[in-house]
């Protein structure tokens, strides 16, 4: 008997990707009875599910963000621990995207699908690194799936930032970054680059930082920017959600140099549009080369693309004899700023 093709047991539905023999959804877009969550960004971890299965840090982050909406029953699953759900076996492996972010590997009657969620391949000390899992179907994101997207080494971007801080000592550098993942990675990168000064933060970023510290990721001295006087912020680095940097909130800062940390910053006009003065190309997603490399490493003959520039990725892998299928799941890629 040949193994059933994963398209017979893993189906894109309006609510998200559904596994019938296990009777659960992965990252469902609306409330469902049983959900497996790859990571805690709000477009993947939505509120109101009955039973939620995820990595322990993802559950902690979800509880902090969603409160009671994090799921009526919550089941943590450690990396690599196999679990039988209905007629399928499944386990989680790190995806390297943010703290707790997981790939979900599912086996059913000898065929294996891996849903990778969002992922990156650049080193990041704030989360466990992506590990490729050989599979029959690999489900991937395609946020930066255009050959114009090449994320440079993050250390070089941090050096650019620190050079600017040195050049404009009378100004405050404010960096737009999302609260979960990007913020903590930036702080860790700054610490690695030897920036031992206190880092100031918008209030919205603090809760996620506390959870990172509780999971053993030291972030150094963090201070609230909201209560600091303007003169205390001269020469400092301030982190804030992207929505705050162009807003009234930023008026408390001394002649701010507006920076933004995102993979989109590679495209100048895009950076320019957001009123950014110093674009930093730092992303928590895979770039073009990393997406292609990852697909080659997992060796899947078929790749399903959840969201992003699926046309380009499917075109590119077809040249290597890999079948691509767009899932066109609407609703991902809206929170994390990439």
């Amino acid at each position: 008997m040949t193994a059933p093709h994963p398209e017979t047991w893993l189906t894109p539905m309006p609510a998200g990707l559904y596994c019938a023999p296990g009777d659960f959804f992965i990252d469902p877009l609306r409330p469902v009875p049983r959900a497996i969550i790859t990571h805690a960004h709000s477009d993947h971890a939505r509120p109101g599910h009955e039973a939620v299965l995820a990595s322990p840090p993802t559950l902690a982050l979800m509880r902090a963000r969603l409160g009671e909406g994090a799921g009526r029953s919550q089941q943590p699953l450690a990396w690599g621990e196999r679990l039988t759900v209905g007629d399928v076996a499944l386990w989680l492996q790190p995806a390297g995207h943010v703290l707790g972010s997981a790939q979900v590997a599912i086996e059913y009657r000898g065929s294996r699908a891996v849903i990778s969620g969002d992922y990156k391949r650049q080193p990041d000390i704030t989360c466990d690194p992506f590990t490729p899992i050989p599979c029959d179907v690999f489900v991937t994101e395609a946020t930066f799936a255009l050959p114009v997207f090449r994320h440079p080494p993050a250390a070089g971007e941090i050096a650019k930032l620190l050079a600017s801080v040195k050049l404009f000592p009378e100004r405050t550098h404010v960096i737009g970054c999302y609260s979960l993942g990007k913020t903590q990675r930036l702080i860790a990168l700054l610490r690695q680059a030897g920036w031992d000064e206190p880092i100031y933060m918008h209030g919205a970023l603090a809760p996620m930082c506390e959870i990172y510290e509780a999971h053993g990721i030291p972030l150094g001295e963090l201070r609230p920017a909201t209560v600091a006087a303007k003169k205390d912020l001269v020469g400092r680095i301030v982190l804030a959600p992207p929505s705050a940097i162009a807003d009234r909130w930023a008026r408390r800062l001394a002649e701010p140099v507006v920076c933004m940390a995102s993979g989109w910053m590679r495209v100048r006009q895009r950076a320019k549009q957001g009123g950014v003065e110093l674009p930093l190309v730092i992303s928590d997603h895979a770039d073009w080369h990393e997406l292609n490399r990852t697909i080659d490493e997992v060796g899947a003959p078929e790749v399903w693309v959840t969201h992003g520039s699926e046309d380009a990725l499917i075109h590119e892998i077809a040249k290597r004899g890999i079948r691509g299928r767009p899932l066109r799941l609407i609703g991902y890629g809206e929170e994390d700023g990439s």
Partner: peptide, 27 residues
């Protein structure tokens, strides 16, 4: 130097011919 389909999709995203070529050109 590049795949015409990928170039067209990239140009559509970047919106500027010169910038698309600058970004897509092999390092």
């Amino acid at each position: 130097r590049t795949d015409p389909t990928l170039f067209a999709l990239s140009y559509d995203f970047v919106g500027d011919l010169a910038e698309t070529v600058a970004l897509i050109w092999p390092d």
